[in-house]
Structure formats: C-alpha cells, structure tokens
Design a protein around this nucleic acid. Structure first.
Lengths: 357, 357
DNA sequence: TTGTAAGCGTTATCAA
DNA sequence: TTGATAACGCTTACAA
C-alpha cells in the first residue's frame, strides 16, 4: 500500500497541472482546456480521453491561474458584524447557499460593527479579487466602497444602507416594523411606553426609533424623552439602559427594544431587578431569535425574514455579475409575532406572584 | 465632481497594476515588488517614493497574481455542518478571528452533515488553492482528504475525527462529558435514565453514548436498550425519539440528549405532551446554547469550550503552515453546568401543578 | 478539430 | 541597489 504524502510539498503521484495532463495524453493544453470549458469544441473521442484522464488523476484545475487569466474569480465577500448573532448566521447561511449553487465561494469577514475593521475587510476582499461584496455597512468607508466599485467589484448591502450611490440593497422596512411593535403596545392599553433604540449612525437605529415616535405622536401621546434610551445594538448598552429605565420615578409599563442583542441585555437587567414580564413590564423586540418561543414567557417580537434577506442580497449580487446593472433595492416586510411577553398593563400578576415565593 | 464608475469594467482613474505603478515612477516592477515585500532591499528614498505612490493611488497588489506566482494563498477553508447552529457559529467566529490576525481569509462552506456536499466543498476549496482546511468531518471522504493532503493542503479537524492518518485535531472529551452528565443524573437519584444518542458513524455520536453506558454499568445498573434512542443530531429525529420514550409503559425520569439541536426537538416533544421539567423529567444535554439560561427552567448542560475549539483548530493549522509537521491532537474538557432542568425524581412538582391549572 | 503563442500580475533569478 | 527576464497554470486569438 502506498504511503500518503507527509505534508506540505506537492504530490508527485498525480498529474496536477493541465500541461502535465496534456502531455500524458499527447495533446496541447488548449485542447484540454477546451475539453473542460467548451466540450462542444473538441472531438468526442478526444473529450472522452481527457475526461477519463481527469477522473483517473483527480485533476482539478487551478482556480488561481484561471482567475488570473480570465480576470474573474468565483468568490464573493460577505462582511457581517457578528457571526454569533443569529440574524447574521442566517444571512451567512443564505448567502453561502445561493453562492454555492452559482458555483461561487464565500469569504466571510467579521467587522464587529467597527468602521476600521470594515475598511480593512473591504480592502482584503479587494486584494482577493472577489467578484462582489455583500455587507452590512457601518456607514463609514464610503470612499473605500467607491474605490472598490471603481475596480469593478459589485457591492450589495443588506440590513442597512451604506450611502453608496446607486447601490443594490436588501432591506427590511424598519419604520413599519417599529410602528407595528409600538402600535401593538398601545393597543394593549400601555401609555408609559419606552424604547431602547439603536445608534443614530445606522439607518436601522434611526428608522426603528422613528417608527416608535411616529405611532406615539399619531396617538397624540407626548413622547417623554426620558423613556427614549440609546444603545449601540450590543448587550451591555441595553443592560445599562434598561436599568436606568427601571429606576425612573415612574417606570414604563412597556418596552420596545430595537434589536435582539439588546433584548438579551434588557432581559438581564429586568430579571436582576425582579421585574416580572409581562405583568409589570411588557417587552417587544426587533429581530426574532430561534429560542424566542422557548423562554418563559415566550417573547413577542418583530421578526425579520432573515433567510430571505440573505438570499435576496445574494441574488441582487449575482444579477449584477450577470450584467444587469440597474441599481435595485428590495424592501422586505417584517412581521409582528405576538407571544407571551406583552400583555395589558397590570395583567397576569397573580401567577407571577405565586411563582416568586 | 467626478463620477464613480458604473459597474463591472476596470477603472481608468487609478493605477491598479504594479507595472502601471512602476511606469509612473520610472522604476521596474521588480523594484516596486521589493519595496512592498522586502523593503530593506531598496534604497530608502526609492522606498518612500513607492510607498507614496501606493498610497496616493490606493494601490493594492493583486492577490491572485501573487498567489499564482508564489504558489501560496492567504486563505483557508472552513467546512461546518450548519452555520445556524451556535456551536458552529462560535467556531466560525474563532477561526475567522485567528485567521484575520494571521493575514488569512476564511472561505466558509456548509456541508449540512452530508457526505457528498462535504466532498464537493473539499474539492472546491482545493480548486481555490486554500493553504489549509478546517472541518468537522462527516467521516466519509477519506480518499478526498488524502488527495488534498497529497496536494499540500493542511487538514485539521475539529469536533470529530475524520479518520485521516496523522491528522491534527481539536476535540472535546466526549466520553468524559457524557459521563459527567450521566453521573449527575444518577447522583440526583434517577434510575430510569434514557438517552437520545447521535449517529454511530460520528465519533461524537459514539463517544457520548459510550460515556452514558459506562456510568450506568459502573453503577451496576442494567442498561435498558429501550431507553437508548438514536438520532442524527437533528431536531426532527430527537422529536420522534423523545415522543417514543415518553410513550413507553415506564417512561424514563431523566434524559441525556447528545447535542443542542436534538435538545430542541426533545423539548418540543416534551412540551407537546405536557410533561414538566424537571419534576416529571430531568433533562441534560451536550452543548450549551446562548439562551440556556433564559428558558424556564434554565437548562443543565455539558458545555463545550466552543471558542477555544475553534481557536485551537486554527492555531493547529497555522502551526502547520509555518512548517511544524508533527501531528497534534488537542483534547479540551467540557464542563457540566448545573441549572434548573435537572432535579431529583419527583421533585418540585407543586409549583408546576399550580402553574398548569 | 487541434496546436502555437501570448498574456493575466506578480515574484525570483540573475546580471548589471 | 536596480532592471531584464522567465515563470506560475491557465485561456484565447490565431494559424494550421
């Protein structure tokens, strides 16, 4: 039995380049290349011989060489803020899925919601000569985005808008989602309604706050600025914000949290202070999470069609790569999923009290 | 103001190749190349001129061309079963982190626990000429793995063993984890202890079952085969398995579930049948989940050091790439996290009954 | 239908 | 210290 190779040097046993393969078949590389890419242009029996040799030797062409020659790569970049966030995990999965079915690979980068890391990631992807980039923009780095586009890299953003001119985007109607959440709280009878909003720098942060404000104003309620907290879409900020809200002389009876990570921070603060949901505080958040139905009480959320966002973003990109260069923005609709964390103010207290003894 | 480029053609405005850059500086490409890769080999003032031009033009070298010439790429492949599973998300994050800090990019592939998709992913990564591959092996595709290694691609597996000879691996002590979980159940007084195990084909499946059996035997308990269900690490299989277990004439009072996805399936079945945890059934699972502390009751689990597994796998890979070719396996220790889903048989029933009325 | 040869954008060898 | 030149493995005119 023959030994497998030890390590990092190239194998001698297999024909690993096209010219080796061609030589062993007494053909030119052009013919082998044609057999592989435009089989109809070679004689049937030649084709067969080539294919047989390819199979026998486990030959796979060198994608790097191919890319250099054709000035095209079969890879796209994907920049997310935090792969651990189920929202982005779903995006990665969807993008990987449609990319793979188009014969493309996905290079995933983590930007950690940090403009410099995003910039670095963009340039690295450019160096790798990706055909296109899908990203959740921090909003900075407009110059870089323009430069990459100038180099022929297609840019698609999802979740939020980068500010790049005439870009493609797969978005969700954040204003409407926030409106739905807020409307739901008011419909339950709440009047002391607070929010933990996202950063102003992001369209998602702004839009979700706007939807919240809209509804309160439409209902003729005065918007108490003490009830409007700012977070940065991370847990810790929401933990602090929720703590402040609960310490208010007149704490809110209902809370709208602008994303899933901040929901966790808020939940921690709420639990720590022994406030019961929904009897003492109703809570609704933007973004569903896979476990929202398993917690007690199950969480009312505004769910985004995450898979669909990812799929759409990828489809917009491949559409570009196929030559369609009309800028296109797709706005998807979020949906309110009523579960147990929202209720009329003061409701359901009995059970909770019993449980706490 | 100048217009940004429309789309897919190359920009004219910037000097985008090394020869253009060299020409504009009246230098040869060799000098520019040296300035960029071995700055100590060029005259200081030349270096400065080059660097200035690079900056002014936003020049980045073409990684594809560089790779072709040096026969090295700065990318590694990562094959996971399901990016949405928080276990794998954590791996992706950790691997991406250490790769980025080593100047490498990560190409992520989803294999969906499917041997053919894994094989395809392996070959695609080979085509992209990745320097190495980190994967959670399905256990099939040994031939492919050998072939890739023969081509000089470093292979590291995590979570489970591929069967590849002398491979690097970042693993967890699955037997010990399962032993800890089972020991915990017995210590609580359970004697009717069941498990939903993973597939025999995977080392994780086998080892976690072995740990379970070990402890029962060590305690002198007969292992009732009806209490040993097989799943495939997916939700649905565990849903079915849990349903069967709960329908047994003498249902178990405690259950050990072999991974986090199956935990969800089991939870669904348990909830559907109105069985209360932990009073009627104690449950402990392998794999922690980010939300384990938020559900009611909080879940007792055997937690894996996921980030550390990913980091270790990546470090093993880069160690190889730096020339160290002694095969190395790192086995990390899981830890039992006792939370609320396990209790002595029959305990805590009062509260649950009250809540159900 | 097949082969020859040039070239993609780098790096490495060798001379100057 | 710098430059000419070849080469990495492929594709693609063009010629045969």
């Amino acid at each position: 039995m023959d030994k497998w190779d030890t390590g990092l040097e190239r194998a001698g046993r297999f024909l690993v380049t096209m010219s080796e393969l061609a030589q062993s078949l007494n053909l030119s590389t052009s013919t082998v290349s044609r057999a592989l890419t435009r089989p109809e242009m070679v004689a049937p029996e030649t084709l067969e011989r080539v294919l047989a040799a390819v199979k026998a030797n486990g030959y796979r062409l060198n994608g790097i060489a191919q890319s250099l020659r054709t000035r095209k790569t079969k890879s796209v970049g994907l920049i997310v803020s935090d792969i651990m966030n189920p929202f982005y995990s779903a995006i990665v999965r969807a993008v990987e899925g449609v990319a793979a079915s188009n014969g493309y690979s996905v290079i995933v980068c983590n930007a950690d919601e940090n403009a410099e890391k995003e910039d670095e990631a963009l340039w690295v992807l450019a160096e790798r000569q990706v055909a296109g980039i899908i990203h959740a923009a921090t909003g900075a780095n407009l110059e870089t985005l323009r430069a990459l586009r100038g180099r022929g890299i297609a840019i698609v953003c999802f979740d939020r808008i980068s500010g790049l001119e005439d870009t493609d985007a797969a978005l969700v109607d954040n204003v409407e989602g926030a409106r739905a959440a807020t409307r739901h709280l008011l419909a339950l009878g709440h009047r002391l309604v607070a929010t933990i909003a996202g950063p102003d720098r992001l369209t998602t942060g702004r839009d979700r706050l706007r939807g919240f404000r809209d509804i309160l104003e439409e209902e003729g309620l005065v918007v108490d600025e003490a009830y409007i907290e700012r977070g940065d879409f991370r847990r810790e900020s929401a933990y602090a914000a929720a703590t402040r809200l609960l310490s208010l002389p007149v704490p809110p009876t209902a809370l709208f949290v602008a994303n899933n990570e901040m929901l966790i921070g808020a939940l921690d603060a709420i639990r720590e202070r022994g406030v019961t949901i929904p009897s003492e505080l109703s809570i609704v958040s933007f973004d569903d999470v896979p476990w929202a139905g398993y917690v007690e009480p199950p969480l009312t959320v505004v769910a985004q069609p995450t898979e669909q966002i990812g799929r759409t973003a990828a489809e917009l990109l491949f559409r570009r790569l196929e030559g369609d260069d009309a800028p296109k923005t797709v706005v998807l609709m979020p949906v309110l999923r009523e579960r147990g964390s929202t209720a009329p103010p003061g409701a359901d207290a009995r059970e909770e009290v019993m449980r706490r003894d």
